[in-house]
């Protein structure tokens, strides 16, 4: 795994991109600013020594506690956390990138938060971003074809959000 030296090179290459890191975790991760995401990814793929040429997985984690009693006890503010797992087939190393988004754009429920798409960096991101859009509700700006992939196209809501309500009816099929 890359030590602090790697972080310094990344900071020098993309100034202002890194806004947090945890190198002591089991899987060390780097947090980047959402607007710098594509720049960082491009650098990681093309220029960094390790050449992270493969995007393995994109995950959205919804940090939101629907239960008001439990919500009063948690230490974090509600937000969406995007996690990118990268892999290098050259140096056989992995890297975890994280970035934070608001749950809704401008705090208006139903307005999906924007995040620049990384399809231009790794083509596999096409389907992975569609899945995240479908299930977690993130609007990937610059994605060539952002539509639902696993759920039907007329499905409502984003199932992996913590406050998702299971529909009671779908085209005459009972939901519960």
């Amino acid at each position: 795994m890359r030590g602090p030296g790697f972080l310094d090179t990344l900071q020098a290459a993309c100034p202002g991109a890194v806004i947090g890191s945890s190198l002591e975790s089991i899987d060390p991760w780097i947090e980047v600013a959402p607007e710098k995401l594509v720049e960082v990814c491009q650098w990681l793929k093309k220029s960094s020594e390790s050449r992270f040429d493969s995007l393995e997985c994109i995950t959205a984690v919804d940090w939101f506690e629907p239960d008001a009693k439990k919500a009063a006890k948690v230490s974090w503010k509600p937000h969406l956390e995007m996690v990118y797992h990268l892999w290098s087939t050259v140096s056989r190393m992995s890297l975890v990138l994280k970035t934070q988004l608001p749950r809704w754009q401008g705090d208006v429920a139903g307005q999906l938060p924007d995040l620049p798409s990384v399809v231009g960096v790794w083509r596999t991101a096409d389907w992975h971003e569609r899945e995240v859009y479908d299930l977690s509700g993130v609007n990937f700006t610059g994605h060539p074809d952002l539509r639902r992939i696993l759920c039907p196209e007329d499905w409502e809501g984003y199932p992996l959000r913590k406050d998702y309500q299971m529909p009671l009816e779908y085209h005459g099929i009972r939901g519960r």
């Binding site: 696993l150 759920c151 039907p152 998702y164």
Partner: peptide, 10 residues
Amino acid sequence: IGYLHRCAEK
């Protein structure tokens, strides 16, 4: 795709 989707993650 998606005909077998069960949202196992949820």
